[in-house]
Amino acid sequence: MVMRAPFKRQRNQPTLWRISLKLATWNVNSLTVRLPHVLDWLTANQPDVLCLQETKQEDSKFPYAALQEAGFNAVHNGQKTYNGVAIISPHPLQDVHLDLPNFVDAQKRIIAATVLGVRVICAYVVNGQALDSEKYPYKLQWLEALHAWVTDELTQHEKLALLGDYNIAPDDRDCHDPVAWEGQVLVSPAERAAFERLLALGLHDSYRLFHEEAGQFSWWDYRMAAFRRNMGMRIDHILVSEALKPLCLDCVIDKAPRKLERPSDHTPVVLTLANA
């Protein structure tokens, strides 16, 4: 069953027209631990959509009341201890869909909704663990199913955004040390090929529309002072359909939450779109 908080309009929010739309994705690595960070970030940034991954909560534990009090609607697809995805918005969330329809899987990794005419898909892609792990072929099969489903979604929704933790660094610019990571998950040729196949559907990596440089990351290990030393990976992405590409105004990685006490190992990626 889809669980949602009742819609509550933000104070001073325009009712008829908005100059721009702000879409964000954030792997929070336990919403139980990071809820204060999320509420503060929502208040400060006022996104139109925030997609969360790794909530690590059952639907019954999801903080609908706290989000409603802050003025946000929410839908959640969760499970105890692992995975879990959510979409949060001050706007109505319509046509909500859970899970990949073409892939039998107990893991809660997909939720989709239509917000202000944009089809928003929140995805938490399988990590894969290691190339010799049984979780690696599972990752590739899951990505194949995602590709097939998104193909179908694009036929129904011209304006589509696929946000989430992809657990894929698309090329060497997105890895702090490509040589050290060679032969590991997140950077393997098969994973990168799966990412390229998504782009071949007519999707665009919104961050790369504005930033071509290397060394820009969204995830840093907790160990070895990785954040301070910028030993990270860009594995959190917002892909947009051809219809949304000309509306993209900017895409940034917001590193501020990674500097907080007890942060997630990921930080938000935020896309601003012109409203049209």
Rank of each mutant, 00 (worst) to 15 (best):
T15N: 12
T15Y: 01
T15H: 05
T15L: 10
L16D: 15
L16M: 12
W17D: 03
W17R: 15
W17Y: 09
W17A: 12
R18A: 07
I19D: 14
I19R: 07
I19V: 09
S20V: 08
S20I: 04
S20K: 09
L21S: 10
K22N: 14
K22W: 15
K22P: 10
K22Y: 06
L23I: 14
L23S: 06
L23Y: 06
L23C: 09
A24C: 14
A24D: 10
T25R: 05
W26Q: 08
W26K: 13
W26Y: 15
W26R: 15
N27V: 10
N27D: 13
N27M: 10
N27A: 13
N27H: 07
V28E: 02
V28Q: 04
V28C: 13
V28F: 02
N29G: 08
N29H: 11
N29E: 11
S30R: 14
S30P: 03
S30M: 11
L31G: 05
L31S: 06
T32L: 07
T32G: 14
T32C: 06
T32E: 14
T32F: 02
T32P: 05
T32D: 14
V33Y: 04
V33E: 11
V33M: 12
V33C: 09
V33G: 07
V33S: 14
R34V: 05
R34S: 10
R34C: 05
L35G: 08
L35T: 04
P36V: 07
P36C: 05
P36S: 12
P36K: 04
H37T: 10
H37R: 10
V38Y: 04
V38E: 06
V38K: 00
V38R: 00
V38N: 08
L39M: 07
L39G: 04
L39I: 03
L39E: 05
L39S: 06
D40E: 10
D40Y: 15
D40H: 15
D40L: 13
W41M: 08
W41G: 01
L42S: 10
L42C: 11
T43H: 09
A44R: 14
N45E: 14
Q46C: 13
P47T: 08
P47L: 07
P47I: 01
D48Q: 05
D48S: 02
V49N: 01
L50D: 01
L50Q: 01
L50V: 09
L50Y: 02
C51R: 00
L52D: 00
L52G: 01
L52Q: 02
L52S: 00
L52N: 04
Q53T: 06
Q53N: 07
Q53Y: 01
E54I: 05
E54F: 01
T55W: 00
T55G: 04
T55M: 03
T55F: 01
T55Q: 04
K56F: 00
K56N: 11
K56G: 03
Q57W: 02
Q57D: 00
E58F: 02
D59L: 04
D59A: 13
D59N: 10
D59G: 06
S60F: 00
S60K: 15
S60W: 00
S60P: 00
